[in-house]
């Protein structure tokens, strides 16, 4: 296992990634979609962050904003994405290409479509080394074999010459993970990496990802709607609703003592393996039309604890314990 050289250990508390006031809007004919609306969070080297929310909550767009891959009609309107000390939003395209894949890598949701069907797995893996290293061809192949073995693909020498359609979904996602990790990125963004896969292999792949980032001391942003997965993986959690952060905090505390009613709802929707066989909880209603959000708290129409105030004034994110903050006028935490 070749370890990528670690950056010189900085004693400073500067986080690896620091997102501040990020706003990513989509200008569609039907109106402006505020997919990401003023999101801020920090991520330290080696940390795992879970970005949680329902579908359509703008989680993926945070990942693509960091990668600089927002396409029209989408646009980053405001904010700062500071990574290793530089603001990614100010980098030109050529320098951003040097960040993509090499410093920040991304894993897509659907491994069936993320790989190019016309090239061998080896070719697509090796492409990363061609793009980001000056490794000679012979070494590249050896490194690819090693990487495939590392992500648990049997007979890597032969599999290198196979095409994506000759792999199962889980194996393809392993290939995608190998591609993401092979250039030794400092930050891995995994966008719903197990959603499209069989339940039986979801846990395997999550463990694989965790091991990969731990081995290389990289950081991970795990974007998912699966709070159960997050609770096993992440050091801290950011909960998003309609493009805004409704709660963030250290994983253990947030899971045990959620402050926002939306987080509570998400937690209650997780099936427990106890014998009670009670009906699963569900959050009433659905995500509102993001083009025409109601005034006040976006979650108010679905919230059982909503008061008139909630429908008029938008709550701000307020910290009430170290690292634990929620945007709610009547947080659950306050009762404690």
């Amino acid at each position: 296992m070749t370890m990528t050289p670690l950056p010189s250990a900085e004693p400073t508390a500067t986080p690896l990634l620091s997102v501040t006031g990020l706003k990513t809007y989509f200008h569609t004919f039907a109106g402006v979609v505020k997919a990401v609306d003023g999101v801020s969070f920090d991520l330290a080297l080696g940390e795992i962050l879970g970005l949680v929310g329902e579908s359509g909550g703008g989680k993926s767009m945070i990942g693509f904003s960091i990668m600089g891959l927002i396409d029209p009609p989408g646009r980053i309107e405001a904010g700062e994405i500071r990574f290793e000390g530089q603001d990614l939003l100010r980098l030109d395209e050529a320098r951003m290409r040097g960040v993509r894949g090499k410093r920040i890598a991304m894993i897509f949701q659907d491994p069936m479509t993320a790989l190019n069907p016309l090239y061998t797995v080896g070719n697509q893996l090796e492409e990363m080394l061609r793009l980001h290293t000056d490794m000679p061809a012979g070494q590249r192949r050896a490194r690819c074999v090693e990487m495939l073995r590392d992500v648990g693909i049997p007979q890597p020498e032969e599999r290198l010459d196979s095409y994506p359609h000759q792999f199962s979904g889980g194996m393809r996602q392993r290939v995608v993970i190998a591609i993401a990790m092979i250039a030794g990125p400092r930050l891995l963004i995994a966008d719903e990496p197990t959603t499209a896969l069989d339940v039986t292999i979801q846990a395997q792949l999550l463990r694989l990802m965790k091991r990969q980032v731990e081995q290389t001391r990289a950081s991970l942003i795990l974007i998912t709607h699966d709070l159960a997965a997050v609770s096993q993986m992440a050091d801290k959690v950011v909960v998003l609703y309609c493009g805004r952060i409704v709660e963030r905090g250290p994983t253990a505390r947030l899971i045990r003592r959620p402050a926002h009613h939306y987080t509570r709802g998400l937690l209650d929707s997780i099936p427990h393996d106890d014998r009670s066989r009670r009906r699963l909880h569900q959050i009433p209603g659905s995500v509102p039309n993001i083009r025409a959000l109601p005034p006040g708290c976006a979650f108010a129409p679905r919230c059982s604890a909503a008061q008139p105030l909630c429908r008029e004034v938008e709550p701000v994110l307020a910290e009430f314990a170290p690292g634990h903050a929620a945007a709610c006028h009547f947080p659950l935490e306050a009762k404690l």
């Binding site: 891959l69 993509r100 790989l115 069907p117 793009l131």
Partner: peptide, 17 residues
């Protein structure tokens, strides 16, 4: 529009690639 195009961009491939 395909995912593998976006993935190729995420890999850091240049426009020509």
């Amino acid at each position: 529009k395909q995912d593998y195009i976006k993935f190729a961009r995420a890999k850091g491939a240049d426009r020509r690639g």
